[in-house]
Design a protein around this nucleic acid. Structure first.
Lengths: 215, 215
DNA sequence: GTTATTGCTGACCGAAAAGACAAGTTCAAA
DNA sequence: TTTGAACTTGTCTTTTCGGTCAGCAATAAC
């Protein structure tokens, strides 16, 4: 792809920084309030600019929302490519997959929540993207898992539902973190919690694959 | 508890029916739009009554929302008591637990979604309920699982995170059903899908517990 | 049948929010 | 230093929404 070389003026730098700050702010508000519950005013307040200025950068709410969603999804698609490196065993591939997904829950909890709100709501703004981007990757990954099964490398499990379970089990640490905080009596999930979570989920998945040795 | 005997007039019967219809309608709308995105007008439209009449039955939106949430949670708490019946093995208890949870996802997808929206949003109206009702049950259930571990009845797994994983893996079939429909190229998840899902999840959990035989 | 209670509706209000618009300010290039 | 573009803000309009209120209609109690 050709990227137009842009002169870096004081303005253009400010612009980039401010856009990024707006997107982060929007993510926070959308995660907490959903699309309808979030006002441009509230987002502007978090970004510490006026509402009118926010509208100058993102001319309307829907556009801003879609940008937030798309940023999250692009990161996911990128990080979760289920590629086999040479010499990797299925176990290694899946282990890395779970690790990456868990990282994403930890690093981008707000984006994850925005996505969750959107899917639960019937994905009015996202369905096309799911079909065009997520589905091909899903189908490729399922095919790979099935080939492992037919080669006898892993147990004969339900490949599609394996993915659903991995996604659910990892994403829950972003979306439902509040429930866990209440149950574990913590104000927020810390690094240790995520480590425990990751090793619990990893072990869970490894056993599902029929791995002989766990550690 | 003493229940006051109420005369069953034509009016009181209608009232009960209409209240129930309103609650079902509210559940549908809240599931799709979340609290903020749902208008009383929209709920009234689904229930096929006027907005004013809706307000006559439920004097404000917050109250209606809390009723919807509470109904769902009461059902969950009731169905998901992790009680050992005499002679049950841990495997049987957990198998039944997964089965019940899966049933709830199938039978009450809308209530589940309302709950999910609420938790993701930081549970502004639910935190107290979680602490007072869900937490004690969780702690009791975790204790039981840990006792099984110490008796060597099941593998040495992380009890807390086992629950988180089971909840996530089962609830995802209600909350994220749209994503699955897209990926599996279906208009809705049918009975077969739920059966496949349940047996996949059950098998995963059973393996995690270290069960020797799967089928 | 008369009265009291319950159920229901149309008209209205105030608050919040999206966005348009115009005016002013800062900055970079000539 | 001037000029035009990029940036910022205050004001205003329109729409949506939660909720009130007065009055009408149906039903139950006597």
């Amino acid at each position: 792809m050709v990227v137009k070389k842009q002169k870096q003026t004081k303005q253009s730098i400010n612009r980039q920084e401010l856009e990024a700050r707006i997107l982060r702010s929007a993510e926070i508000v959308f995660a907490e309030k959903g699309y309808n519950g979030s006002s441009m005013e509230a987002i502007a307040a978090v970004a510490k600019i006026s509402k009118q200025n926010l509208i100058y950068y993102f001319s309307n709410k829907e556009l801003l929302y879609k940008r937030v969603l798309k940023e999250m999804l692009d990161i996911w698609i990128e990080k979760l490519s289920f590629l086999e490196k040479d010499g990797d065993t299925p176990e290694q591939v899946i282990r890395r997959y779970v690790h990456e997904k868990m990282q994403l829950s930890r690093l981008y909890p707000n984006g994850s929540k925005v996505f969750a709100h959107e899917i639960i709501s019937g994905a009015p703004m996202l369905k096309d993207y799911l079909v065009s981007h997520l589905k091909p990757q899903f189908e490729r990954d399922v095919k790979l898992v099935k080939s492992w099964i037919s080669k006898g490398l892993i147990a004969d499990i339900d490949a599609e539902h394996l993915f659903f379970t991995i996604w659910a089990a990892t994403q829950t640490y972003a979306d439902f973190s509040l429930q866990m905080e209440v149950l574990l009596v913590k104000t927020s999930l810390d690094e240790d919690d995520f480590e425990r979570a990751e090793s619990a989920v990893t072990e869970f998945v490894m056993r599902a694959l029929g791995a002989k040795k766990i550690n």
